[in-house]
Write a protein that binds this DNA or RNA. Structure first.
Lengths: 337, 337
DNA sequence: TTGTACGCGTTATCAG
DNA sequence: CTGATAACGCGTACAA
């Protein structure tokens, strides 16, 4: 197995210095076109690729951005990541993805790992995390962007939407249709500002109608099908039975719909179900899922552009908010009289 | 913004040489425990993290493994990746994921990028790709593993299952139930050995019954809902109408079920539908999807262990095959008399 | 426009 | 068990 070719090998073959080869690679316009083509030929001959470590060491940049997401196992973050990656790729920046499985300690670990790898920037989901992490990021001066979460006075660069307002809008619509027996299956709110905000939004709307969300009407579960189904079965066993179950995301809602069916009930006739996120899943359920559409791809793109903006530190625009839209489909209907 | 601390800073504070600090980090047992703790204190004080580039340059390893997958947008590869990542993390290896969007040129690019980043190993999906890529990998001596695809005489290390046999088994079951009007919606077979093998498997079974798959009964589409639905609508417009649609994966099958419903037909009474992959999606469809269960997680784990085995080059076991199982659920039933 | 030469932070070899 | 020091491959002032 041959040792990997180096700048020197290429330079030797092209009859130039390593500096020139380096320039051809990084600032081609600063090299006479004749030499340039000679160098390029040599590069091609060796199938030369710059050594990442050497480059990182000399330039102190890696052209790498890291993202830490809770999980790849459900599709929620996939689309946004894809967009992020595509946007970064346009600037020849590589995306490194790590998962934390909704565990703050593991997230901290992953952040450390990525920083250790010298990422030039970091994308993190949501705002809720230990202050020491923010301190570390600031100390190291690594640019970062929070996505999926947004509030006007967020002290960090963030790209997202108002989870609370979106959930409030959904709950308002539910109430407007006449529902009064409202139950909710939320994600685990601990250490999760999105899940928390969504619960608060629902509470807001209920309060406007003089209602509230009893402890017995609110269950927190992990974001997976089985958990959603189990929670729904529990809620539907109560008397009076809820006429609607508002879910913290689409996966939970899918589980809830499964439970409804398995109990011999029908949605939305016996009980309505709503979701959040509008992933593909929402379109294959029966009935189709009423949910909150979230601008996955645009968040990814915006995060990329924020990170790629060099003057990010003093930039005015460090805070991007997107609108969400309520998508009404078959799973939500007025309660049966 | 303070410059990042280096080995030297830590060494200075601990009153030792940089070599010792390095040893504490990499082979703690080779340092007296007293000095070790002094060094550790200094490391903690500076919140020191080794510089990735420096380390890569000196050791010529990155503790990084790359994976190039077609897409993150559907859940098909997510679970396997998650398992891969978890297994690698146990050995302190970081996974870098890149996507190629089912485009061979883009895949080649991504492979090059990852090699440029100095990954210690590579995970690739399937076997079908330009020989020059394999040549490049061999020349550079970078270990790699093919997953999701398998055949006994595959010349490269591979971890997967027999796509053709699995599809054949599914089609046999379909025929056994009495179906004779069989249609198929496959993935795009070009440059995709899995999609190709699945079509071949279906053809095998049909042939055993003296049947074949007319061009009009086979449509290739991208792996997404809309494409699956469109293809199904097309197939269902034919006379005689197929009594079953065998799909190349679950996402396509979900689209097909949508189409069935939108045409006012019912599955499986009017037409059966089968999938492939057994992702979560299969469990939320109505009817539940009959599909082929694929060992996502075990493939990920096996790929990790192959890659982490140092003597992989001369290893006897470079070729791991898993069984698939046919999961019968509601979407497949005998044809109506 | 091109070349020379140094430094980036770490590991590994070799003495001690 | 520890220290000195030579690589490792590249980018970039600075000089020519």
């Amino acid at each position: 197995m041959k040792p990997r070719p180096t700048l020197e090998d290429v330079a030797g073959m092209a009859g130039v210095s390593t500096a020139t080869v380096s320039r051809v690679l990084n600032q081609p316009e600063r090299v006479r076109s004749e030499t340039r083509s000679r160098v390029k030929a040599a590069v091609a001959h060796f199938d030369y690729t710059p050594h990442f470590g050497g480059r990182a060491l000399a330039s102190n940049r890696t052209n790498t951005v890291g993202a830490v997401i809770p999980t790849m196992e459900n599709a929620i973050f996939a689309r946004g990541l894809q967009a992020l990656q595509e946007s970064l790729a346009e600037e020849a920046v590589t995306l490194v993805v790590a998962t934390a499985n909704y565990d703050p300690a593991r997230e901290a670990d992953q952040i450390r790992t990525l920083l250790g790898r010298g990422v030039d920037g970091l994308v993190l989901i949501g705002e809720a995390r230990d202050p020491s992490i923010y301190a570390m990021l600031e100390r190291r001066g690594t640019p970062f962007v929070l996505v999926w979460s947004w509030r006007a006075d967020c002290p960090w660069p963030c790209v997202g939407f108002d989870n609370r307002a979106a959930a409030r809008a959904m709950a308002r619509r539910v109430l407007e249709l006449g529902h009064r027996q409202v139950a909710m299956i939320a994600g685990i709110t601990r250490d999760n500002d999105r899940a928390t905000a969504r619960v608060e939004g629902v509470r807001d709307a209920l309060r406007e109608h003089g209602l509230n969300l009893n402890a017995s009407r609110l269950i927190e579960t992990p974001y997976n099908l089985e958990a959603g189904a189990a929670a729904a079965r529990h809620l539907l066993a109560a008397t009076p039975r809820p006429t609607v179950i508002v879910c913290g995301n689409d996966v939970i809602a899918a589980g809830a719909l499964n439970a409804v069916r398995s109990l011999g009930l029908e949605a939305p006739a016996d009980v309505s179900v709503t979701g959040f996120d509008d992933i593909d899943l929402a379109l294959v359920l029966d009935p189709l899922l009423t949910t909150v559409h979230v601008p996955h791809r645009r968040m990814g793109e915006a995060a990329a552009s924020l990170l790629l903006t060099p003057h990010m530190r003093n930039a005015e625009v460090r805070n991007v908010v997107f609108e969400t839209t309520l998508v009404e489909r078959g799973s939500l209907a007025p309660p049966r009289k």
